[in-house]
Amino acid sequence: MAISEEQVRHVALLARLALTDEQVANLGDELNSILGHIDTIQNLDLEGVEPTAHPLETVNSIRSDVVKPCLSRELALKNAPDTDGTAFVIPQIVGPGGGDA
C-alpha cells in the first residue's frame, strides 16, 4: 500500500506538522520503505483471532470519587509560552476544528 504525496500532506495536517516540500518528499520515501516491510502483516490470515489492546487481562481499574489537592496556578502556568498570569494566552482561532465535546 504505497502512500502518495497527497496522503503525506493530509496526514501532516492531521498531525499538525508544517512540512517543507523536501520533507514531504523524503517522508513519502521513508514511509513507503517502512510500510513495505510492515505491509506483510496485511497478508496474515488472522480471521477469528481476538485483538490484544493490552498485555494484561485486568478489568475495572477505577478510583473512588475523592478530591485531591490541585496544582497551584503558579505551577500550572509555570511552563506556559504565553500567559496573562491567570490563563494560557493563545492567538486567534480561525479555520476548522473544535467544539465537539
Binding site: L13, R16, L17, A18, L19, P91, V94, P96, G97
Partner: peptide
C-alpha cells in the same frame, strides 16, 4: 504565529 493552526503546525514541525 498568525493563528492557532499556524502555531500548532510550525511549533511542532
Amino acid at each position: 504565529p498568525t493563528d492557532v493552526l499556524d502555531l500548532y503546525m510550525r511549533s511542532r514541525a
